[in-house]
Design a protein around this nucleic acid. Structure first.
Lengths: 371, 371
DNA sequence: CAGCGTATAGCAACGCTGTTGCGTAATAAG
DNA sequence: CTTATTACGCAACAGCGTTGCTATACGCTG
């Protein structure tokens, strides 16, 4: 059953539209909001009044622009809300504290033991949350986003089978963590969370983008049509297992000639440029299928050779995509660097509460926020 | 600038939600609509009253369901609105007349001369519209959808460079056709229109799907997250130019080892099963990247061997997709057959006017409907 | 320095949305 | 015939963005 489109939805939607602009540009005035949202100035005044009451926004004096009454200026209160993001990797847990503006304020890195259990992870996450929550006033923490390797179910918040992790089959991590922490929790695939973070920084330009992560496996987080794309079972982005060489070398996944095995073999031989070329073939394949506007490169195994990868992939995009003059995507490295997954997960939590809803259809996952 | 979320949007959205259900199930009652939309029964009554006034819906007697006052039943009036869809291929123009329920009522097939010009196409389309419009009452035709090979710009309605068609560079076809026909026109890539048609028939089950077209080239229409996905420049779905064999045979696109060249070479050798296996590798690649729930096969070069393709691809999906027990996509042949593109284009036109909007954001393409 | 034109802010009334409360209609069962 | 049940729909309502208008605060002008 869908959520009905009623007046509450209308209000929340417009409030979120204004918050979205405020989060992006920080300082703003009524006329700017009015022209960007299409609302009348009067309606914007009402929205701003609500946001001031909620503490998300505050007056920031006036600006004289020449003749006439000065414009009232407002600004976002970045420290009015926080979110914590966690990146669960195979050997480490990385956690960040982000404010409403998306700024990463603190980072924590904790090692995880081999084959850690759900209980162990919860303990570590809880310790991290305690440490980070100390940095912000209580009641201002909206929740915790967790980015993790799949397969997992974003809607249900259940880890199905984390690749190469024992003890992780059908674990209802979101529910467990929410209960343990007493906070709303979102669970998402690592690359999906990561691309949300990059798309946040990229702004409106990021309409259709991919985050290519090369880090113990190769995956792609997809941002399509202006929002995260997860696929039918939260398993989109298994980019590394795209076959590029029929009858090529066998891959752990059971198929042959996967991008990942070709790439890793080249890297094992020390041929970074060959590895980059393999990845470039995959990226161009992705562009052919998805017509993206941005490709972001990240991951611990790629970033040390970022210059080579960037060069090879940009060349491939320019020369191998037909009509590259207007179809080509911009290729860059991640702006969030090693924090990309954790920061993206935090961003997703903030967007969940303060972002523009995609439509009045049912939110299929979000627990009601604790107050 | 976005369209503001105002009361008009609210009304239109809810009206469209009810029309969507009516178009799908035909006969309905107040309680069903209320539970499916989340609206109160009283609100549904108001919506139905508006739709009856517009002629889209009419009372259909009552239904006794046991004790209590009988339920008032309503039904869609399929012939209250029509749309025409056109499939512009290299040698033929296929046009269909569809009613509001999505039923294809008439089909017209007209040959096109080699290297036809925009003017020539307009003449043919106008003749087809005249013939088809005679089958429905005037004023009930909402517009014409055109599906055509790309690259083209859906938002602007401009054909950039139709593959292998001279005379087709930066042709503002939507505007030209709208002026010539005096009707709203939508222009879309052939496969994008096609997948919209299949998704319409598939209903809610079609959330993330691809239509694989094998017909003078191999393309994929993508339906992601419940709506058509076109990419940053309406050029998504160039599935045939996914490289599957690094350093394989040269393709017309300039790269080597593309799916299309491997497939076509196998077919030229008469090895249908090998060709199907090549396509299957591409399909599994697509599933790895996009985690689809449905794959639909179509196209004049595939359908004659449908059984072989279906068998090979289904086997590949079952055996090569990890966790195929719950990640696998359903693979079928097109239900619309050779009409798929034209019927899909008509469907897109109807959805444009009577479908649920994806959000209050600006409609970036639709001309205001002529009355 | 008073008066004027101008640009902005905000109060108040308004139209319209879906919602709520409640009376009414139509049926089967007792 | 009476009663319980189910559905319908009028009327009042709360709350949304919009509209009309007044108040305010500035630069400019004489």
């Amino acid at each position: 059953m869908d959520k009905p489109a009623d007046l509450d939805y209308l209000r929340d939607y417009n409030d979120a539209s204004v918050v979205a602009i405020a989060r992006r540009i920080g300082v703003f005035d009524r006329a700017t909001i009015a022209s960007e949202t299409g609302l009348t100035p009067q309606a914007v005044s009402k929205v701003i009044a609500r946001l001031v009451t909620a503490g998300l926004v505050e007056p920031d004096g006036v600006r004289r622009q020449g003749v006439g009454k000065p414009t009232s200026v407002y600004r976002l209160v970045p420290d009015s809300r926080y979110a914590i993001g966690a990146h669960v990797a195979r050997r480490t847990l990385r956690m960040v504290l982000s404010d409403l503006a998306g700024q990463v304020l603190h980072t924590i890195l904790r090692p995880l033991p081999l084959d850690f259990t759900p209980q162990h992870l919860l303990d570590e996450v809880a310790a991290g949350v305690d440490a980070l929550a100390g940095e912000c006033r209580s009641g201002r923490l909206v929740g915790v986003g967790i980015g993790m390797v799949g397969p997992l179910d974003h809607a249900q918040g259940v880890v199905r089978d984390a690749h190469r992790l024992r003890h992780w089959h059908d674990v209802p991590l979101r529910e467990m963590a929410a209960e343990r922490l007493g906070l709303p929790v979102m669970l998402d695939k690592d690359v999906a969370a990561g691309v949300a973070g990059e798309a946040w920084l990229g702004g409106k330009e990021f309409h259709d983008a991919a985050l290519i992560m090369v880090e113990s496996g190769i995956g792609a987080g997809l941002w399509l049509g202006g929002s995260a794309y997860r696929g039918a079972h939260t398993n989109a982005g298994e980019f590394g297992h795209m076959v590029l060489q029929i009858d090529g070398p066998s891959c752990v996944c059971g198929r042959r000639g996967c991008l990942e095995i070709l790439h890793d073999q080249a890297l094992a031989r020390g041929e970074v440029e060959t590895a980059a070329r393999v990845l470039a073939v995959g990226v161009v394949n992705l562009l052919q299928s998805l017509d993206l506007d941005h490709v972001v490169l990240a991951g611990a195994d790629l970033l040390p050779h970022a210059a080579t990868y960037l060069d090879v992939i940009r060349t491939a995009v320019r020369t191998e995509v037909p009509r590259a003059d207007w179809l080509a995507a911009e290729v860059t490295t991640s702006r969030l660097g090693t924090d990309v997954i954790a920061a993206g997960a935090a961003m997703e939590m903030l967007n969940e509460r303060y972002g523009r809803p995609t439509g009045p259809r049912s939110a299929d996952h979000a627990p009601e926020p604790a107050t």
